[in-house]
Amino acid sequence: MSRRLRWWAGILIPFGVLAVARWVLPLPFLVEVLIFSVYTMACNFLLGRVGFISFGQPAYLAAGAYGTAFYLYYFGRDPLLGILAGLASGLLFSAVVGLVFVRLRSDYFALVNLALAVIVYHLMQKVLAPITKGDNGLWFLDRMTSTPVLDLTRPDGFVWFAWLVAVAVWALYKALDDTVFGACCLATKTNEDKVKFLGYHDFKIRWTAFVLANTTAALAGSLYGVYFGFVSPEMASAARAADPVVVTILGGTGTLYGPLVGALAYVGMKDLVSGVVGNWEFFVGLLLVVIMLAGERGIWGTLEPWLRRRWAWRRPAPALQE
């Protein structure tokens, strides 16, 4: 029982802090951090657990966002169903794309994904313009109906919904780490051949991981869609392709809290820097290079060992019967 409690504490404490921050930080900032952390979590899983580096995350983000947008603009009015539609479209999209992409070597994988993002961008901007309204985007903010308990159409309702989703995503990925599947993912990252010798199906593992992560990215896209009540091709822009990778590395690749810390730092920095100079791309790029050269452990990757040491020093030695 206490183990389970401690397991959940690992998630609820940081998110509890974030929940309290609701009364301190500006609401849009908090929402952005929450959604972005979900988006980054997907990338973190791919990069840190499976060894896939993808510069095409905007493609999956857009898949989810447009799934939601199409539903809310053309068919229904319920934002919850809209998010489900986004999830479904993300699932379908990544399941199909994954069949081809997962077979590729990691360097090809990264490049092909970036190409995919650009293709999705062109698809939404030009080819499908009759349905997507091209650069004007789809507006559906006033079409959405209020939902019971948490009203997703109102920012103060939405922020709690986003918070719940983020907690659920964290719990999912944390739980995944303890499963055989999680171990297999990590193993394929380290040595594909040996996983095959152990009798696990390499393709299936990678495909499942790919679909799971990119559906998560699509979920983030859906959340953006509902929050803004607006979706445009800009979402799939290759100019934003580096964002999730940058934030993953900024936070600390493969760590549990890396995406959260990274999203917090990144969104905060973006708000601060763009308030001062307006040319934040330059700083983001520079920051990425500096982090990489400094040892690529990221913020949380650097903080964690230090915190652990402090913590261990203050706490009496753990009891043995644990």
Binding site: I53, F55, D107, A110, A239, A242, V245, V246, I249, N279, W280, E281, F282, F283, V284, G285, L286, L287, L288, V289, M292, L293, E296
Partner: peptide
């Protein structure tokens, strides 16, 4: 690693 770093250079340069 080189891919990510060089992407950073690209983004910074475009900025």
């Amino acid at each position: 690693f080189t891919m990510i770093t060089s992407f950073g250079i690209l983004v910074a340069g475009v900025g």
